[in-house]
């Protein structure tokens, strides 16, 4: 597979940047002519991944989010959202539906479930004290 385009966005993990991140990734993928559903799926998954960083990764300090989008062969989109935050104690448990460490603040615990459902592939790597990397892939179907 050949990389046909790529972009890296680095932004502070501040509330509000989830909106910019999903809009920026959607705009970057637009030249592939995705369907409205495909672009909405990507926006939703990016919003989930970036919101996770904003809400959970840096409880005691300011931190940053890296969003990298790589496009292969003008049709496969790979999105990686990385932080250098506290990491996940148990990534498998964190990915289960309705699992949340912040139920008192009304977080639904559905973020990873939605990323998984809206994208073709989801891979989560995390190391305590070092951070988390979420990689999501989606192939854009060719539309007539």
């Amino acid at each position: 597979m050949k990389i046909t385009n790529h972009v890296k966005i680095n932004l502070p993990a501040h509330v509000g940047n989830e909106g910019f991140a999903r809009a920026a990734v959607a705009a970057f993928c637009a030249p592939l002519s995705p369907s409205i559903e495909e672009i909405n799926d990507i926006k939703t998954a990016v919003s989930e991944a970036v919101t996770n960083v904003i809400v959970h990764a840096y409880p005691e300090k300011d931190g940053e989010i890296d969003v990298e989008v790589v496009i292969y062969d003008d049709k496969l989109i790979s999105i990686t959202v990385t932080d250098a935050g506290i990491g996940l104690i148990d990534p498998d448990q964190a990915m289960k539906p309705f699992f949340t460490t912040k139920s008192a603040e009304e977080h639904s615990g559905m973020g990873f479930t939605i990323m998984e459902a809206f994208m073709d592939e989801l891979d989560v790597r995390s190391e305590l004290g070092r951070g988390t990397r979420v990689t999501m892939r989606k192939a854009i179907k060719q539309h007539a």
Partner: peptide
């Protein structure tokens, strides 16, 4: 125009 899982939490509450 858009809702993510944060909205689910708001609605469940």
């Amino acid at each position: 125009s858009f809702m993510d899982s944060t909205g689910i939490g708001v609605l469940l509450g």
